[in-house]
Amino acid sequence: MHFLSDSLQQYLTDHTENEPEYLAALSRETHMKVLQPRMITGHYQGRVLSMLSKIIMPQRILEIGTYTGYSALCLAEGLPHTGELHTIDINEELVDIQRKYFDRSGYSNQIKQHTGNALEIIPQLQMDFDLVFIDAEKKEYKRYLEVVLPKTRPGSIILSDNVLWSGKVVEPLDPSDKATKALLDYNKMLKEDPRIETVMLPVRDGLTLSRVRGS
Rank of each mutant, 00 (worst) to 15 (best):
E137R: 10
G78K: 07
Q98K: 11
G69N: 02
V48G: 03
I97K: 03
T30L: 10
S108T: 10
L79Y: 01
G65Y: 01
Y141H: 03
E77N: 08
H114W: 04
I97M: 10
I55E: 02
H86T: 13
N117L: 03
L12I: 15
V48S: 06
T30N: 11
T30S: 13
Y44F: 15
M32I: 09
S71L: 02
I122P: 01
D103I: 06
T13Q: 15
L12H: 14
L79P: 00
T82P: 01
L145I: 09
G69C: 04
G65L: 03
Y107V: 03
P37N: 13
L73Q: 01
I97S: 06
P80N: 06
L125D: 06
Q124M: 03
T68A: 08
T87N: 07
D89H: 07
G46I: 09
G78R: 11
P80R: 04
A24C: 11
I111Y: 11
V95S: 12
R38F: 14
T16Y: 14
T115S: 05
L35W: 07
I55G: 04
R60V: 01
Q113R: 12
Y11E: 11
M127A: 13
T87I: 09
E19D: 15
E29P: 07
L125M: 10
G83A: 03
S27F: 12
R143P: 00
K112I: 15
G65F: 04
Y141I: 02
K100P: 03
E63F: 00
H15A: 13
M39V: 07
Y11V: 11
T30H: 06
N91S: 12
R104K: 14
V34L: 13
C74W: 08
L12Y: 13
E19T: 13
I111K: 03
N117V: 05
K139H: 00
T115K: 05
L79W: 01
T16S: 15
G69P: 02
K54F: 10
E21R: 13
E19P: 11
H81F: 05
Y44W: 14
Y70R: 07
E137D: 14
E77T: 12
T66M: 06
G46V: 05
R28D: 15
E92P: 00
R47Y: 05
H86Y: 10
L23E: 10
H31Q: 15
G46A: 10
L26H: 12
N117H: 07
H31P: 08
E146C: 01
H43E: 14
S71R: 02
Q113Y: 00
D128C: 09
Y141C: 09
L145E: 08
K54I: 11
L131V: 01
L85F: 07
S27V: 12
Y67L: 14
S105Q: 09
G116A: 04
P123M: 02
I121Y: 02
G106P: 08
Y44D: 02
E77L: 03
I55Y: 06
D103N: 15
D130A: 08
G46F: 04
I134P: 02
V95W: 08
N18P: 13
L75Q: 04
M32V: 12
L73W: 07
A118R: 04
A25E: 15
Y70K: 05
Y67G: 07
R60W: 04
I90S: 15
Y144T: 09
Q110N: 06
A76Q: 08
Q36P: 00
K100D: 01
D135Y: 01
R143Q: 15
N109Y: 05
D96C: 05
E77D: 13
R38T: 13
G116T: 09
L49M: 10
I97R: 02
K112P: 00
